[in-house]
Design a protein around this nucleic acid. Structure first.
Lengths: 110, 110
DNA sequence: CAAATATATCAATTAATCATGATATATGGA
DNA sequence: TCCATATATCATGATTAATTGATATATTTG
């Protein structure tokens, strides 16, 4: 991922509602959630949620498919992946043990 | 890491200069860099850089030690690690292959 | 085609953030 | 103690972002 895209992703995630949305979609996994249900679960108004979903989408962190009247949203794991790659690029100045804890944190037990 | 701290870290990284600073400090590793040299390398004025270093510090992404007249800054790998842990908490809805690419991206060759 | 449901867009107000000039604090050396 | 160097803080104007009410678009159902 390039810098522009990384900045977009970080800005997208730096707002509470959007961070909540993203984590919710990460947790539900493959099945995703329709926009309306995301708004309900998080107690956010319809147009605010729509705008926030658009920002997350633009940032490459989520994607959606229409499903009848609803639109179902999913987390884009590739988005996080690319962001992390950019953050840790050429990391550690030759000291592997520096980034070890970061990697350890990510071996999720899913 | 909790939500408040994660939001601080994401907001801190969502600004170009601060993202540059953090990546620079990740890349130089253990030796770190004095504030002045960070500013020089990135072409950022003294007071702007100072404010940005304070924001990154407050967010837990970097730390510093005084060294005579200078103050030397270092990346906090634990900060990234905690942030990732929070982002991916309870991830994938039972589908391990979803977060695999994220992990793969992070096995840095340092 | 009309009504209902689900989501998106628009315009405007409010709020937060950024860079900057000026100045203050801290450290080291003469 | 006085000066120079390195960094931090303060106040302000300018840009940017967030929320909201109103409205528009798309889809399904009758």
């Amino acid at each position: 991922m390039d810098k522009k895209q990384s900045l977009d992703a970080l800005a997208a995630l730096s707002q509470e509602t959007r961070l909540d949305v993203f984590r919710l979609l990460v947790q539900v996994g493959r099945q995703g959630l329709p926009a309306g249900e995301i708004g309900e679960r998080l107690g956010v108004r319809q147009n605010t949620m729509s705008a926030n979903l658009a920002i997350l989408t633009q940032a490459g962190l989520i994607h959606s498919v229409r499903e009848g009247r609803s639109i179902r949203y999913f987390a884009n794991m590739d988005g996080v992946s690319g962001l992390l790659g950019f953050l840790m690029e050429n990391c550690c100045g030759g000291a592997p043990e520096l980034c070890q804890p970061v990697i350890a944190k990510l071996t999720c037990a899913c």
